[in-house]
Amino acid sequence: MIKDRLTSPQVTMQLFAAMVGVGVLSLPESVGTKAGTDSWIVIIVSGFLAMLTVALMAYLGNRFPGQSILQYAPILLGKFAGTIVLLAFLLYFLMFVGTVVRISADVTKLFLLDLTPVEVIIIGMLGMSSYLIMHGVNAMARFNEFIQPLTVFLLLLVLTQTIRDTDFGRILPMMGDGIKPLIKAFPTTFFAFLGFEILLFIQPFMEKPAMACKAAWFAIGAALLLYTLITVLSIAVLGAKEVTLVEYPTLTVIKNIEVPGAFIERLDSIMMMVWIPFSVTTIVMFHYCASLISSQLLRLQEHRVITLLLVPVVFLIAVLPRNILEVDEWSKWASWLGAALVSVIPGLLAIVYKWRSKGKNA
């Protein structure tokens, strides 16, 4: 029996926390390389596709009240195939956590803690993640309720200072190179929305599971607006070509801000203070889901012990890449695996459910 309960706004915060992370800094560059001035169009299309996918996930959750994919995947697909699906999700979550932790540690070392070893920063992030997970999903929800609105407010406050340097003519012409660049950029942009799939694992905790779809749509909509705003401002300030020449365009844009009176000299430091909570909350949500899957596969009553046992595994994944190029390659593999799972598994489970329902009614 599930004791912890989440309200619809809390679920919205959880999903938003899982989606918005590294992309806040890197998305304008990664999508701009392929889509140029049309980057914002691809982001909107990817967001709406994510909404359709999450609606299918909510549908499955409502067909199995009080159960997550941990329970109904083996029921629908059989024990063997269901276990394979859960193992694939476990691999995806562990790889994703490992790469996000490494990227977060690298960026933190580069801009804030230049004398601190990356390994120490990684251990600190995993320690914070484990502490929150050990206290249960309600503690995680309360943490996100506090930190997410504050960080989004600070981010928007900083971004408002870029308006004087923007030239929205730089986002034109619209679709000047046709639809081909948009198609090429679509996978990269869809990766930025990965995280909504945790609904498959936390929907049973909801006080009103029927509200799962609406809560998820709010989360994706908020992430869509934030990503679109950041990308449009990056192009409008730097230019479409210049965005592709810097690794973290959002930070570059903020570095160029001049505050009247020099009241604050380094707004990029404030941006880093905003971004670190984004990355930490993403790490927490994926670490938590990996712990749930592991405890289910090992038939454990509690996920807390396995949460700590997964820390060395994630640490190893985080430190294995030797440089930023290898980290990027690992991140792409994790993203492709996640995109494949969210694109195939919910649809497959829904088809099997419909087929079995018809068989029972015949």
Rank of each mutant, 00 (worst) to 15 (best):
G21C: 07
D177S: 12
K332R: 10
W275Y: 11
I351G: 06
F186I: 10
F186Y: 03
V313I: 15
G338C: 03
F111T: 03
F111M: 13
V305R: 12
M174D: 00
L25A: 13
L60Q: 03
R102T: 04
W275L: 08
I183D: 00
I317D: 01
I75V: 14
S26N: 12
R102L: 03
F168R: 01
E119V: 11
V85Q: 08
M134H: 15
T189E: 04
I2N: 15
L172K: 05
L310G: 03
V344F: 11
S46H: 12
T108Y: 13
S104D: 13
R266T: 00
A318G: 03
S279F: 06
V344R: 04
D106T: 15
L298E: 05
I75R: 13
T108G: 12
V97Y: 03
K358L: 11
C213S: 15
L27C: 02
L229W: 04
E29V: 09
V274Y: 05
I171G: 01
I103R: 14
W333N: 15
M175E: 08
D328C: 00
T33F: 00
K208N: 14
T162R: 09
L348S: 02
G78H: 05
A340G: 11
E247I: 06
A240L: 03
E258M: 10
M13Q: 15
L226E: 05
H287P: 01
L233V: 15
F263P: 03
